[in-house]
Nucleic acid binder design. Structure first.
Lengths: 225, 225
DNA sequence: CGTCAAGGGATTTTCGATAATCCTGTTGCC
DNA sequence: GGCAACAGGATTATCGAAAATCCCTTGACG
């Protein structure tokens, strides 16, 4: 976070982080006064941040009734994920077609970082945070060869939307999953320029995640009752 | 524009319209004071509107240096359009697979409206505005059967981005194009549930537009010199 | 007993003024 | 002549208070 960033920008970044990480839960009301205290800023920067987040769909504004964190739902999760399958699919197809040696190198490097996390034994919070970070970097590296800013920004946005569901499901432990193996298969198919296989691995990867998040969401609802 | 909309919302809508229609040109600086007068509002609503537009990519913010209308370029146009081919393709595929009778009816109705515009002889501004309106409605109707809010909102966003290029090219008259025919072919292939043909027609439709906008952009650059 | 209207409190929305920042033209120095 | 530091002006970013809006309660009336 740059030192001479504008106040609005830092509030935006923090608020965004608080929502993506689930510290501010779905549906939670965002009162202006509370946020001003929380982020130690005036009304204008806070409103700015909320406005931007609204355009991104992380926050919902009802006129004259204020902001609240966007809701989550089965329907939204499934719609989001099936859209991701298609869009990441296109990006991956293009990356395989157009990616050069830098793309290959970046992908290998990102995978190496991701695979290294499981070995490090320091469990809990921090491990989870770095894993999330490397995971996100891996998937970015995977498609970054496609050279389409438009498509990449859409992909990133959908990825972040999904990240919120992931954060909300950290408590839930589903069946154990061979994370590293899945990512390796995805990478290898891509580097081999095998479009069909890569797309299939990518679809499976996302759909397996969907299933897990789905159960977590249902479990969360049960707890709430 | 609803009567008890908030001021910020109306400024947003107007500003958005002014940018999409080209009344505010690419690269144009947006000084706070000028906008406050233009839309007769205080600094806060104006800033709100700009913030939302920034998140959508229609304006660009440089910290402490203010806002300006986003630039246009060949590179951006091509990237945008090739992304649109893919995304509208997915949406269309889903619409053909899932669309019911309401989708069919809506599509027929939208085409009828669109086709009727050419017959009405009142040329110029107004004709162009209604054509643009019906055109946008037609393409929305075409994919609206897909029942994916996520995908539809992405598609809409890209469509609006492209609309800006269309607006900037109104002056330019390229080779005459069989608009109605293109749209009819697109509609008929879709209603016949012929995925391959529909996707091909859609790709051609977008690419033909790209070509035209491309020439218009180049012509615009020549004029500027 | 239900419906409607008015009042009051809480909250959002907007404004005008202040503080912070940047750009430009100028001066002084090497 | 060239370059760095520096005011001055313009513009943005932020704040705190005022205005507008909504929502809930209360009480009157049918």
């Amino acid at each position: 976070m740059n030192a001479h960033d504008t106040l609005g920008a830092t509030v935006y970044a923090q608020l965004r982080g608080d929502i993506l990480s689930g510290r501010l839960g779905p549906g939670e009301r965002l009162r202006a006064e509370a946020l001003r205290q929380r982020y130690d800023a005036g009304g204008s920067p806070v409103r700015e941040a909320l406005m931007r987040l609204e355009a991104e769909g992380f926050v919902v504004l009802e006129q004259n009734k204020g902001f609240k964190v966007a809701e989550v739902s089965d329907a939204h999760l499934h719609d989001l994920q099936r859209t991701r399958v298609e869009i990441e699919g296109v990006a991956l197809r293009w990356a395989i077609a157009e990616g050069g040696v830098d793309w290959e190198a970046g992908l290998l490097a990102a995978f190496h970082r991701l695979a290294s996390v499981d070995k490090a034994a320091n469990n809990g919070e921090e491990r989870n945070a770095t894993w999330l970070h490397y995971h996100q970097e891996f998937h970015l590296a995977l498609v970054s060869g496609c050279r389409s800013p438009t498509l990449l920004s859409i992909r990133q946005h959908l990825f972040d939307q999904a990240e919120r569901y992931v954060a909300l499901s950290i408590a839930y432990k589903g069946e154990i999953r061979d994370d590293v193996g899945e990512h390796r298969a995805l990478m290898e198919a891509s580097l081999a320029r095998d479009v069909e296989a890569a797309l299939a691995r990518n679809r499976e990867h996302i759909e397996r995640t969907t299933e897990k998040l789905d159960h977590a969401l249902a479990a969360g609802r049960r707890d709430a009752r």
